[in-house]
């Protein structure tokens, strides 16, 4: 396991743990998702660069486009929940519990 592999793996895992364990605002959950996507971008680019398979280097761009789509959908959901629930606190999303 090279240091770069370790770095992006632990970065992704940190983002996942932050998303899973303590989230108070919906916005910070989205930021954690963005952090995960960013570490994936770095991972894909480094894989391309280290293995010298440059024909693969379009894939980080595709990843970036898709993560931009995801981020914008998440922000639109943030606006929608702020409209309907009054704030972006995740503890307000409790209408559907049993």
């Amino acid at each position: 396991m090279t240091p770069t592999h370790f770095a992006f793996s632990s970065a992704f895992m940190l983002g996942l743990m932050g998303l899973a364990f303590h989230r108070q605002h919906l916005l910070s959950a989205l930021l954690c998702l963005e952090g995960m996507m960013l570490s994936l971008f770095i991972a894909l680019s480094l894989w391309t660069l280290q293995l010298d398979s440059t024909s693969f280097s379009a894939s980080p761009m595709l990843l970036l486009a898709f993560s931009a789509c995801e981020a914008s959908a998440g922000l639109a959901l943030l606006v929608a929940t702020t409209r309907t629930h009054g704030s972006d606190q995740l503890q307000n999303l409790n209408l559907l519990q049993c």
Binding site: L19, A20, M36, A73, G74, T81, L93, L95, L96
Partner: peptide, 22 residues
Amino acid sequence: RSTEAGTKYFLAQATAAAMLLF
């Protein structure tokens, strides 16, 4: 209720997709 369902679905699915790609 439906907005909340959409938000929860989005969070779960986006996490799962990111983990799949990772």
